[in-house]
Design a protein around this nucleic acid. Sequence first.
DNA 1: TGCGAAGCGGACCGCTGGTCCGTATCGTTG
DNA 2: CAACGATACGGACCAGCGGTCCGCTTCGCA
Lengths: 202, 202
Amino acid sequence: MPEPRSRKDAARNREAVLAAADALFGRCESPDDVTMADVAAAAQVGKGTIFRAFGDRAGLLRALYEARLEPIRKAVESGPPPLGPATPPQDRVPALLDATLCFKLDNRSLALALEESGSGSPYRAEHYERWHSMLRAVLEQIPGLPDSGFAAHVLLAATRADLVEHLAGEKHVPRETMRAQLADFTAALLASGSRRESDAGG
Amino acid sequence: MPEPRSRKDAARNREAVLAAADALFGRCESPDDVTMADVAAAAQVGKGTIFRAFGDRAGLLRALYEARLEPIRKAVESGPPPLGPATPPQDRVPALLDATLCFKLDNRSLALALEESGSGSPYRAEHYERWHSMLRAVLEQIPGLPDSGFAAHVLLAATRADLVEHLAGEKHVPRETMRAQLADFTAALLASGSRRESDAGG
DNA sequence: TGCGAAGCGGACCGCTGGTCCGTATCGTTG
DNA sequence: CAACGATACGGACCAGCGGTCCGCTTCGCA
């Protein structure tokens, strides 16, 4: 393959930057407290090196985000229930949403940084498209629901980083309470489908 | 009253800035195409004047937003059905959501500007708090629903400016389609409540 | 060991939101 | 109408950001 393998120092620096940024975003309060210069300093690297490796700020954020999301992506694509493909749709939808909610709770600053200063709307991000079509496909298998594309957008919007941050950080809603509320909400929505189901069935 | 009435020129300039900003945000593609200097130039006013009158960028955005929102606020607080207080909850919820959706569709760049660069999360804005508690109160009157506070957050998230922008601007979803999808979604959610109602009732 | 290519780093740039203060305007008072 | 304090004006100015550039260093292949 014509893949131009990167040099050893380049790879090492890339990891250093990733690690430094990870730590910095994890620690800080607001995402824009962390500047590119900060990351460069923390990684003991020149600013130019960061931009060479990631293109721009959004590129760095995306790389970090994808890296952290990787385990969940795997679990969804080829893992055991309740996240994996073998799960029945009625159970998988809440599981997917619970997973994203927990992810955002565990990576608040990072998710916030990506969604808010992420070079325009979060909806252009490639990973959003993936999650959306995944969720949409699962919803599609549940009859009696409204437009599954739109429903998927709304359900994902229910786990948006700034909403999560507002509820968890500002209003001090406990983690388990939020998970329960999201689960309840989802259940209520899915119930409207199974209602017509049971009407038809008997 | 100890209200320190503002000078005539100050008031005139304030209006000029408001008008200029309104026009500029209405015309432009992305909200950050409009800088403070642009607004100042368009209003034929010094930059200092803007900051004196509105504090900072977010202040200007907020003032504009509130001004445009004013008619809707009135209609909701003391207008005729389907927005006014005399409307039965089951009809008022979809009406409120449809109104916000239409508002965001009609004021895309402005809403986008306020939500994304509005000095942190849109959830800290005072008008969000108002809308949320309003919607929550109406939802509360419909029995059988999940936590109305959370449901209100989610339903409002369904009309967020960047989602609306994505669907209308990027995916070219027609206005009426979006309205219908939102209405369907809302109906599905409310149905889960009236279902337990009818179970109990007969 | 030598040498081209790849990568490095931090001074540098353009641009933004926001401040500052000498100057012009207001409107009140005698 | 004149004079004067208070208020507002405006644009030069500032700090800090993301992003670029290019002389120098380091890599790794022959």
